[in-house]
Design a protein around this nucleic acid. Structure first.
Length: 828
DNA sequence: GCAAGGTC
């Protein structure tokens, strides 16, 4: 039996489809799908991994031997390459026990352990145990192995890891490597007819990246976390990609902080009458000196006529966009309000459901194997695209635009099936629509815009009016994204006298450079070689998760700035994108065989040891800087009782947020905080003068709330919502009252007879509450209406209402149906 | 409790 190992299940299936003479049989080994088929009388099996199946981590235990020059030796007797440098105290010799120095176990998160952690040996541990089990099971029966992972450095490493698992159970089977860069019959057949050897140097290059990332990431993350320990769950991370990315954001913020705005004045004139009215600015777009602007205003004072001095018309073409790769998709979706991380989550799901092609690509040129006309034909299924598709199909030949990046890994992102708004949830359709329209746009003609420039003279001063009109739609007919509105100029003639309705002079200020949007940041990361198409969005998410950055456009927190400054001062290697560039070139050397993984990793360890040597003596300074930053980020306002700072804090026990006085335990002032994301607001409450906070509940617009629960602005009258069903069943009558707990601000419904009857229901915590006359048909609780910015919502407040279960079942049924539809969509 | 890189 021949065993073919691919990087993912999808690839295993496709290769089986393309190589097998007849349809391959889908099977499972344990829970892993595999594909069996016959070829030239031999039995073949393909199995897909799940990316990396092994993961490097610090070895759980080791001993250091003096006889080996203080190099680490594992329990199995393997001598490890990294030696403890002569400058560090040597650990006591302890056999088969965790490595300790002065009683400190070096696996533990301890400041004293960090210099040793730099040199700690690394092992590869299983990550996908189920897959490894299935792989080994098949490997036992295999006569030969073909590694058919992706054709890149990480693919070589993934294949090499798979091979090490295979050889544990079957060391003798011959191994070869298939290299392909597209899933076409020709390419795959060719790859399997011309098998090569696994490139172990290339795999080592990938493995050195893994080790260096782990060592630097773990050491610096532990340093930052331990230097100012703030409780479990408060990790302050650092890494080869995330820290330079943070540095970009911080540098931009510093530019903004250093920016000195300059005043300037703008003069705008009103011309024409009624329907033909338009505005035009003075030919000097910005007056830096106010008196110059006033002189112009004086010249035109009282004038009522303007003369058309000249009219210039120029046509310019706007080229259709190039095909989407991952980066350009994320940038375009970011402009439409979908974050890169969300875009990738949605794209993955659209891909799995058969609506779009593989979403992780660098390529921006459609391969010749892609049938453009057939893809357009499929999109006819959506009535919104159908007329445009037919127009495209009526052409003799379809030509597509080409981007600058041409790789052969996958085709650029294009729609593989038609979908309508009824087929998909709103956000999914939004992204699908963008991808489908982009695809059609890449096959379209250029748009033509006619620009008009009109010179107008008033009292010896010149004004310039401009208009832009789309005269030929071209690709714009199907791709309206980023389209500017037409600015039509009325028909004018040279020498014509038109009405002048006076001018305004407005004082303005120059603006600092803009903060990065997530889309722009992704593009900048790509330009600097930071991260990959598959990881950039998650790196940004990580920076949000550790609270180094906030909002979009992205702003660094005080903590983010402090971390960046501390590292830049004492460990500058990690804050610059050059670390990645240098690593890339070292990896090229490893792949070329001119250096070894051991040399590169050891050099990197020495460099990290140097930087840690700078950080540790300055721990007090770093600690203070981080502590001040954390306090500044948490600052909400001043305590009304003791005057110290009120801070947003997390309860140790429940992790829920509250506002507490920094003078605790001397001062016990606290305030509750509503659910959702909480940010500080500068302006105090206009009613009571207490600090306010901005609260953003899940999927809602932010609202500004006074922190004082007793403030009038937080007062909500009690609302009678109906009769208590429990009391009614006992022959009594009692009202149910919706009310707010004055201390916690939690809103709930309770029976007015609560001393005897404990009937109560929870309520949504925000939105206007209104009572109805209706009673829930399932449980008899009164129905209420909650009106949020998403509109009114009628609900039964009973958490245990039997109707809720039925709702859930109905939803389950709907999604099962949808699943069935999805699988048919995929078959097509 | 760390990173970044694959993929789900």
């Amino acid at each position: 039996m021949k065993l073919v190992v691919t990087e993912k299940n999808d690839a295993a299936q496709k290769i089986a489809d393309l190589l097998g003479a007849s349809k391959p049989k889908a099977d499972k080994v344990y829970s892993t799908p595999v594909y069996r088929f016959d070829l030239d009388g031999e039995e073949w099996v393909t199995i897909g991994l799940r990316g990396h199946i092994l993961e490097p981590d610090f070895a759980p235990s080791l001993v250091y031997k003096k006889s080996k020059g203080w190099q680490g030796v594992t329990e199995e007797g393997e001598v490890l390459p990294a030696a403890i440098p002569a400058t560090l105290p040597k650990p006591p010799f302890k056999k088969k026990k965790p490595f300790t120095v002065d009683g400190v176990e070096l696996k533990a998160w301890k400041m004293e352990a960090l210099p040793y952690l730099v040199y700690a040996p690394i092992e590869k541990l299983p990550k996908e145990k189920e897959i490894i089990r299935s792989l080994k099971n098949l490997a036992k029966k295999a006569d030969s192995i073909v590694i058919a992972t992706d054709f890149d450095r990480e693919g070589e490493l993934i294949g090499s890891d798979a091979l090490s698992c295979i050889q544990e159970v079957n060391p003798d089977a011959p191994v070869s490597r298939a290299r392909y860069s597209a899933f076409t019959k020709e390419e795959i057949t060719n790859a399997f007819e011309n098998l090569v050897e696994l490139d172990t140097d290339l795999a080592s290059a990938g493995a050195s990246r893994q080790d260096i990332d782990l060592i630097w990431g773990a050491v610096l993350t532990r340093y930052l976390t331990l230097v100012k320990f703030a409780g479990y769950g408060n990790v302050r991370s650092s890494g080869r990609v995330q820290t330079p990315t943070l540095a970009l954001i911080v540098a931009r913020e510093r530019e903004r902080l250093a920016f000195v705005p300059e005043d300037y004045w703008v003069i705008k004139g009103a011309f024409g009458e009624v329907d033909d009215a338009f505005e035009a600015p003075h030919e000097t777009a910005r007056f830096k000196v106010e008196s110059e602007a006033q002189a112009v205003m004086a010249h035109i004072e009282g004038k009522t006529k303007a003369t058309v001095e000249s009219i210039e018309k120029k046509k310019r073409t706007v080229a259709p966009p190039v095909p989407f790769n991952t980066t350009s998709l994320m940038a375009a979706a970011s402009a439409e309000g979908l974050s890169p991380a969300r875009t990738m989550r949605i794209a993955e799901s659209l891909y799995m459901d058969g609506y779009i092609s593989y979403p992780r690509v660098d390529n921006t040129v459609y391969p010749s194997s892609l049938d453009l006309a057939e893809t357009v034909q499929r999109l006819v299924g959506n009535p919104a695209y159908a007329p445009y598709c037919r127009e495209l199909l009526s052409k003799d030949k379809l030509t597509a635009t080409r981007g600058k990046k041409e790789t052969t890994d996958h085709p650029p992102i294009y729609p593989t099936n038609s979908a309508t708004p009824d087929d998909l949830p709103a956000a999914e359709y939004k992204l699908y629509n963008l991808i489908a329209r982009r695809f059609l746009a890449t096959l379209s003609e250029a748009a033509v815009v006619e620009g008009t420039k009109v010179s107008l003279e008033v009292g010896g001063e010149t004004f310039i009016g401009r208009g832009d009109v789309l005269v030929k739609q071209g690709f714009r007919a199907i791709y309206p994204y980023g389209l500017k509105k037409d600015e039509q100029m009325p028909a004018l003639e040279q020498g014509q006298q038109i009405a002048f309705g006076g001018a305004t002079c407005t004082k303005k200020q120059t603006e600092p450079p803009a903060r990065y949007s997530q889309g722009k940041l992704i593009q900048e990361m790509e330009r600097l070689g930071l991260g990959t198409k598959s990881t950039r969005h998650s790196i940004i998410e990580r920076l949000y998760a550790v609270k180094y950055i906030m909002n979009d456009p992205i702003e660094p927190s005080q903590l983010g700035m402090a971390v960046c400054d501390a590292l830049d001062k004492f460990a500058p290697h990690i804050t610059h994108p050059e670390m990645t560039a240098e690593l890339e070139s070292e990896m090229d050397n490893i792949a070329a065989g001119s250096t070894s993984k051991e040399t590169v990793v050891t050099n990197s360890r020495n460099l990290l040891a140097d930087q840690l040597g700078e950080l540790i003596p300055h721990s007090e300074e770093v600690k203070e800087a981080l502590a001040d930053a954390v306090a500044a980020d948490a600052f909400i306002g001043k305590c009304p009782k003791c005057g110290k700072d009120l801070q947003l804090r997390a309860s140790q026990k429940t992790r829920s947020m509250f506002i507490g006085c920094s003078g605790w335990p001397d001062c016990d002032v606290t305030y509750p905080v509503p659910k959702g994301k909480v940010e500080s607001v500068e302006e105090p409450c206009p009613t009571c003068g207490m600090p306010q906070i901005k609260v953003t509940a899940f999927r809602s617009k932010p609202r500004i709330v006074c922190i004082d629960p007793t403030c009038e602005t937080n007062h909500e009258p009690n609302v009678e919502v109906g009769e208590c069903p429990t009391c009614k069943a006992q022959g009594k009558t009692a009202k149910l009252i919706a009310q707010k707990n004055p201390r916690t601000l939690k809103r709930f419904i309770r029976c007015e007879n609560y001393e005897e009857c404990n009937t109560g229901y929870p309520l949504p915590q925000y939105g206007k509450l209104t009572a109805t006359d209706e009673v829930c048909e399932h449980c008899g609780a009164p129905m209420v209406i909650v009106t949020t910015n998403r509109g009114p919502w009628k609900l039964c407040p009973n958490f245990d209402c039997p109707g809720k279960e039925q709702d859930k079942d109905a939803k389950k049924g709907a999604s099962a149906k949808k699943g069935a539809k999805k699988s048919t969509a995929k078959k097509k």
